[in-house]
């Protein structure tokens, strides 16, 4: 009897055994760190006397009170960079998907090629390129196209530009993926039904590609909002983003609970933003279109 049951039991357990590594991974690398940071955010104390969990919810009020400006700035920079990524990335993805022909993969490779160079290194190169007397501004000033005191670095546009540059592929790829598998006959059908090229795009291609844009927005907005490399390298002292604040609290001030609270505030704001966005766009529509 038991012999008959054994294979069935194994068969029933098989799916669980197969997902076990994934669960284990998530537990060790997601749940544990999140729980640690969460408990840390509710602690009080200092580095020398040690920290203890005192359910110090005041940490959150203090974090928001002291750093709301940096948090808001991060969201604004992230949003600007994301919009810039859509404006540059969508046409780029569209062109590769619809006009790339036999060279689609080559174009994608070109797009991804800079990613093979370290993120920090690329950002530092931009610092050199955009320096006040660097190759670009220096030349323009030399031929008199720019006034001597013109600058790009240490400004908000420099940070947004850097963010958009670094995260562009994360917008292009999901949009490309959706456009690429779109039945191009659908565009012809729109043209056949009296829609000009513009209307065919706005009524058919754009709505059908929204799931890709949605994915792209999530993949650029979250990391750009939390990024601190670009703000540090290209933004100077007056354009600090929240990532830099968290870094300082951890590594310079050793104020672990404060750093942890800011982290959670940022996370909460992003999550609320994403869910609100998904809702506004119509999740079922997104799911339905992406299921095709």
């Amino acid at each position: 009897m038991t012999d008959e049951r054994r294979p069935r039991l194994t068969a029933r357990a098989a799916p669980y055994l197969l997902v076990a590594p994934a669960w284990l991974w998530l537990a060790v690398f997601f749940v544990v760190p999140i729980a640690t940071v969460l408990s840390m955010s509710l602690m009080s104390g200092n580095l020398y006397d040690g920290y203890s969990l005192t359910w110090e919810f005041g940490n959150y009020a203090a974090a928001v009170g002291a750093y709301w400006e940096q948090i808001a700035r991060s969201l604004v920079y992230g949003a600007c960079a994301t919009v810039l990524c859509i404006l540059i990335g969508y046409p780029c993805a569209y062109w590769i998907a619809f006009r790339g022909g036999a060279y689609k993969n080559a174009y994608l490779l070109l797009l991804l090629l800079p990613m093979f160079v370290s993120f920090v290194l690329r950002t530092i190169s931009w610092k050199a390129l955009l320096a006040d007397q660097g190759i670009i501004l220096g030349t323009l000033k030399g031929i008199g196209l720019l006034p001597e005191d013109a600058y790009v670095l240490n400004s908000a546009p420099a940070v947004v530009f850097g963010l958009a540059y670094n995260f562009l592929p994360f917008m292009v790829l999901p949009v490309y993926a959706v456009l690429e598998r779109m039945d191009h006959r659908v565009v012809e059908a729109a043209r056949d039904l009296y829609a000009g090229p513009v209307r065919a795009f706005t009524r058919v291609v754009l709505p059908m590609s929204l799931p890709g844009v949605f994915a792209g927005v999530i993949m650029t907005f979250i990391p750009t909002s939390a990024d601190y490399v670009n703000a540090t390298v290209l933004g100077g002292a007056h354009n600090t983003m929240v990532g830099k604040v968290i870094e300082n609290q951890y590594l310079v001030n050793n104020a672990y609970p404060m750093a942890a609270s800011i982290t959670f505030v940022l996370m909460a704001v992003l999550l609320v933003g994403i869910f609100g966005y998904a809702r506004a766009l119509g999740t079922d529509r997104v799911m339905e279109a992406s299921a095709r």
């Binding site: 039945d183 006959r185 659908v186 012809e188 059908a189 729109a190 058919v204 709505p207 059908m208 529509r285 339905e288 279109a289 095709r292």
Partner: peptide, 10 residues
């Protein structure tokens, strides 16, 4: 009328 129908899925 297209072979793949080419209906607008959205």
């Amino acid at each position: 009328v297209f072979q793949s129908y080419a209906l607008f899925p959205h």
